[in-house]
């Protein structure tokens, strides 16, 4: 573990990424302490510029506190990003692993299915899914996971394909080990690094999709979200720039931080790539 941190630390921007991400997580965790009230509550006069009327980052057209919205929205973004990624990575790993390990008919069947999902533009597909189901946290998580898993499946399939012919896996066969055990205990640990990297980057994409959905009004109506804030403020862009800008910056910074972390993980976990530089 210490060794890993030593490798990770060599990438400066990745360290910056993890610090920013840490602050976002902290903000999400303490949102209910700093702003104990409902972020949808009308907190004062409407359209207050930042710093006035007791609003750190101003208020929107209904007098809601933008800063409180950002703090609570961080919770939503991170939660949805994380949940959707876990579901997508889990499902994608199973599909890809089975396809890669068994090959033949199973591979054909699973990969053609994967390709079917990949042919539909992912954001349009996500909108469609949320519109069919009711907009809620669960439906958004499901929609994001459904459009994200094919990438994981393809990656894991490739790793399994190359690992299943390695001699140590064949040695397990000669010892009489079962398929499930070979897949879970022998092959999977050897392809964790790329899965972790793709997963970390997927969190960023998931946050973007979530914001996009909320912006279009397809977010969970009871939960504050950055995308919803931008959507609510977009008509006021010229008269009250702060309503859109601060949640936008929050999205930008968070996604950037996660990408930096993902890249740092990649550098630390794939030693061969690292040495090439």
């Amino acid at each position: 573990m210490r060794n890993f941190w030593k490798l990770y630390r060599r990438n400066r921007s990745a360290v910056a990424g993890i610090i920013i991400l840490g602050m976002v997580v902290l903000m999400a965790a303490t949102a209910h302490l700093i702003y104990p009230d409902d972020p949808f509550r009308l907190a004062g006069a409407s359209m207050q510029p930042p710093g006035e009327g007791g609003f750190l980052l101003g208020s929107d057209s209904l007098g809601r506190d933008v800063a409180a919205g950002i703090a609570h929205g961080a919770k939503t973004s991170l939660l949805i990003g994380l949940l959707a990624t876990i579901v997508a990575v889990g499902f994608g790993t199973i599909m890809g692993g089975l396809a890669g390990y068994y090959g033949g008919r199973i591979d054909d069947l699973l990969m053609r299915t994967t390709e079917m999902f990949q042919t539909i533009p992912s954001f349009v597909f996500a909108i469609l899914l949320v519109a069919i189901m009711k907009p809620s946290i669960e439906s958004i998580v499901i929609a994001i996971a459904v459009v994200s898993w094919p990438a994981v499946a393809r990656l894991v399939r490739g790793e399994f394909l190359s690992l299943k012919n390695r001699e140590f896996v064949q040695a397990c066969h000669t010892l009489g080990m079962g398929d499930a055990q070979i897949m879970l205990r022998e092959i999977l640990p050897n392809c964790l690094s790329p899965i972790i990297v793709i997963g970390s980057l997927m969190v960023a994409t998931a946050i973007l999709i979530e914001s996009g959905l909320a912006f279009l009004g397809l977010g969970d109506p009871n939960i504050m979200s950055w995308g919803f804030q931008i959507g609510a403020g977009r008509t006021l862009l010229r008269s009250a720039w702060w309503v859109c800008t601060f949640p936008g910056v929050a999205i930008l910074v968070t996604v950037l931080a996660i990408n930096l972390v993902g890249e740092g993980l990649n550098d630390a976990l794939n030693p061969r790539l690292r040495e090439r530089q």
């Binding site: 390695r166 001699e167 140590f168 064949q170 040695a171 022998e186 640990p189 050897n190």
Partner: peptide, 10 residues
């Protein structure tokens, strides 16, 4: 097996 590097799970 032949390959001492590939035949043991790293």
């Amino acid at each position: 097996f032949q390959d001492p590097f590939a035949s043991l799970n790293p």
